[in-house]
Nucleic acid binder design. Structure first.
Lengths: 221, 221
DNA sequence: GCAAAAGTGTTTGAGGTACACCCATGC
DNA sequence: GCATGGGTGTACCTCAAACACTTTTGC
C-alpha cells in the first residue's frame, strides 16, 4: 500500500545512545548494520518512528527491541537533519540518551539477528551515518550534567562501592577527584544508602556496598 | 505532483520561539493563523522543512520570512512529536530558540500577510497546537542559561545602561539582584564596554551607555 | 531644593579545595 | 608481615551575598 502526499515528506527515525559504565570506562551500545547503506558498519540502535507513536515511545521501543532493556533514564538529545546524512532519502533523526546500569544490560540482540556489542567510548570503530556526531553530543550532555549526582547514579549497578562511583565520575568528567571531598559531597545529598554488606574477596580491606535511595525525596521549601 | 512512499511518513516543520526584551519584560513574537486548523489563534512562527535544507537553515529562513530578522542567536530546543499534536496529519516539529535585540526586531509581517505581534510572556493568549508547551521549554532554557551573561546580552539593543541589563536579568531569572554585586560580576567578564555616551533626557542623573564587546574574546589557556 | 535613579567598597559566611594517616583483609 | 585499596577530619581560601550613602540631573 503506497502512501502519497502533496509535498515531499522526510522519513523520521529515532536513534538511541545507550551508555553504561563497566570495566572502569564509559561504554556505548552499538549494533552492526546488516543492510546497505553502511552494511557491516557499527551504528547506534534505532529505527523508524511509527506513524501513531510518540517520539519517546519510539525510542523506548527501539531500545527494548535491540537490548531487552527498559532504561531507567531516557532523555531527548535533539533532532539531527542534515539533508544528506542518509544516502537513500531525506531522513531526520531524533536522538535519545539512555543511561542503563551495567548489570541490567543484557546485550542479546533482539528480534533482528544483528550483532550488538558494547564499545568503550574512547576506542570506537568508524560509525555509520552521522552517528559519531550524535555520540559526541551524548557524551557532552552527560559531562555537562554529571554534577547532578543522580545522573551518574543511573549508570551504576544495584550495589556498588563509593570508589566504584567515584571512578565513574572521574571517567565522565575527565578529571580526578579527592576521595574525602567526594564522600563529603555525597553525604549532603542523601541519594545513596548503605546496603549493609561488604564486598568480600578482594586482596585488601573489604569495601562497604551502597545502593541508590529509591524515590528521590524532593526537598520541601 | 504527488509524492509516494512505501511507509507512511510524517510531515516535519520547524517552529521558532523569538524572544526579545522590551518594556521591562520578556516578549515573544507570535503570528495569527489565517487558515485552519486553529484559524484566528496565535501561534509560533514556523513552517515546513524543505526537502533539501537543513533544520537550522529552515528555522533561519522561517524567522526571516516572518520577521525580516537575522537572529544573532539561534539554538535548537528539541523535537516535539506527540501523535495528535496536529489534527490534519502526523506532524513532528523541531523547535528553535531565537534571541533578538529589541531594536533589530521589526515586526512587519513578511510575505504571507499574517498579523504578527509581540506579547509579554506573562500575558499570553491561548496558543495553537502544543505551542504553549514549546514556549515553556524556551523560557525554561533561557532561565537555565541566564547565568551565562552573553546569553542575556543577545536580547539587549545596541546601546543600553547597566540598569537596563539588570532589569532583563531580573525578568528572566525571576528574582531581584543587588546592584553592586551585579556590576562587580560584569566587570570580571569583559563582555560589555562603555559607549562613551550618556542617556540624557531623564529626570535624574543620566546613566552611562554600554554596548556588547564585539567578538567574545575566548580566554586562552 | 527636591525627587529620582546612578554610581561606588567593605564585611561576612558558606562552600570548595588541599592534604596524611590508620584500618581490614588476602596472600 | 606486607601489599593493597578502604575509610576518616581539619585548615585555608575563594567567591557569593548583604549592606548605605553620595552624585547628578530635570523640574
Amino acid at each position: 500500500v503506497p502512501y502519497t502526499y502533496e509535498h515531499p515528506h522526510p522519513a523520521v527515525t529515532v536513534d538511541v545512545v545507550v551508555l553504561t559504565f563497566g570495566g572502569n570506562e564509559l561504554r556505548v551500545l552499538l549494533v552492526r548494520r546488516a543492510a546497505a547503506p553502511y552494511a557491516g558498519r557499527w551504528a547506534l540502535p534505532g529505527g523508524f518512528v511509527e506513524i501513531d507513536e510518540s517520539l519517546k515511545r519510539a525510542a523506548w521501543r527501539e531500545l527494548r527491541e535491540e537490548t531487552g532493556v527498559t532504561a531507567s533514564f531516557l532523555e531527548q538529545l535533539g533532532a539531527f537533519g542534515h539533508p544528506d546524512r542518509d544516502p537513500r532519502e531525506r531522513v531526520i533523526t531524533v536522538a535519545y540518551l539512555a543511561l542503563v546500569p551495567a548489570d541490567r544490560l543484557r546485550v542479546a540482540p533482539g528480534s533482528d539477528a544483528r550483532a550488538a556489542r558494547l564499545f568503550a567510548v574512547g576506542k570506537l570503530p568508524q560509525l555509520a551515518f552521522d552517528h559519531a556526531k550524535i555520540l559526541r553530543r551524548a557524551t557532552q550532555r552527560l559531562r555537562e550534567r554529571s554534577s547532578e549526582i543522580d545522573f551518574v547514579l543511573q549508570l551504576m549497578p544495584a550495589e556498588f562501592t563509593l570508589t566504584d562511583l567515584q571512578r565513574a565520575y572521574e571517567a565522565i568528567s575527565g578529571q580526578l577527584l579527592d576521595k574525602r571531598n567526594f564522600r563529603k559531597r555525597l553525604q549532603g545529598e542523601g541519594l545513596v544508602e548503605s546496603a549493609g554488606r561488604l564486598r568480600r574477596g578482594t586482596a585488601h580491606r573489604p569495601a562497604e556496598l551502597y545502593r541508590r535511595v529509591a524515590a528521590a525525596p524532593r526537598r520541601a521549601i
